[in-house]
Amino acid sequence: MSQDPSHDRNPFEVLGLQGTEDLPAIRKAFLRIAAQSHPDRLRMKSPEEKAQALELFLGAKKAFEVLSQPDKRREWSERMARTKPRTPATPVTPPPEAPAAPAPLRPAFTPAHGVPVAPRPAFTPAHGVPIAPHPALTPAHGVPVAIPPPGAPSGPRPSSSVQPAAVALQLYKMGMVALESFDYAKALDLFSKATKLAPTPRHQAMELVCRGHQYLSTRFFDRARESFERALQLLPECREARVGLELLDKQSGRYLKGR
């Protein structure tokens, strides 16, 4: 296979991938890097940090453009599969040696008159009745305790009282905290999980708002506008979607003036 002239480094490694991901996973990895290293997000950083972030952003963008082509993506995936180190073969261990035959037992000790000593009977209390084995432990009411079968998991069983709606509410609260911290990738993951547990219009709208912010950070203005408008269709009172549209109009206007 010929060397790809359009990309010097492995684009899968640039995006932190394993080489077997599909296009949606590749896009998600690129958006995560772009949201952290885009120049518009680093206004308060030093010139050195801005230069490093810009280099990281351009490398991720170039890697995404290469992997967006099906033939290039398949070519790099096959190349990574061939260059992965093979797992070392399991060393062959010699079979364990057979245990030595036990030494023959000595004959029972006999006293001076030559009569063998009989083995002692099991210990019995003073009244002469042999001790019976202990029965299975039973509680106070007399019902035997069931013994779990071998291999059964120990410990208390998980409670089924936790409702999916309660878990979705906790994920939604955590997603709002991440959204207020401008961590759109984390917020999108939390809102997506909340939507799977409880597909309410609020959860779905906030998932679209986070997608719109990610598109906005990479200057995909058309996709960002589509995400914010779909969020308003699901939830007309969604304040976050309206704020996103206002921010979109400002950034797209500045971008058009700069061009």
Rank of each mutant, 00 (worst) to 15 (best):
L23N: 07
A122M: 05
H113D: 15
A132C: 01
P94W: 08
H113A: 11
H213M: 13
A118T: 03
S217R: 08
F12T: 06
A98Y: 11
P199T: 05
K45A: 15
A60V: 05
L54N: 11
R211N: 14
H134C: 01
P158K: 06
Q18L: 11
H38I: 08
A126V: 11
P91F: 02
Q214K: 02
R202S: 12
E21R: 01
K50M: 04
L234H: 10
R211K: 14
A185D: 14
R27G: 12
L58W: 11
Q69S: 10
A103Y: 02
L169H: 01
P102D: 12
P70Q: 10
A25G: 03
Q36T: 13
Q170L: 06
P148D: 14
T124E: 11
A112L: 09
P95I: 05
Y215W: 13
L42C: 09
P96T: 15
M1P: 12
F64S: 12
V177P: 00
S77M: 10
R120A: 15
W76H: 02
R225F: 13
R32F: 13
E78K: 01
E97G: 00
E65S: 05
L42S: 09
G59V: 00
A100Q: 12
P107H: 08
R27D: 15
L15W: 02
R157F: 12
M80A: 11
M206E: 04
R223N: 14
D222Y: 09
E246R: 02
E246H: 10
R230C: 00
G19K: 04
I33L: 06
P119N: 11
T124I: 06
Q3S: 09
A140L: 07
R9E: 14
Q52D: 13
P153R: 14
T138F: 04
P144K: 02
D183A: 07
V117S: 04
A108K: 03
Y255E: 15
L58Y: 13
P47D: 05
P121G: 07
K186S: 09
L216F: 06
Q163T: 14
A205N: 04
L235A: 05
K62R: 13
V66T: 07
P104C: 01
N10I: 00
L179F: 09
S160E: 10
P107F: 00
E55Y: 02
G19A: 06
V117D: 05
A231Y: 01
R254D: 10
P139Q: 05
S192E: 15
L17G: 03
P39T: 03
P85K: 09
H134R: 10
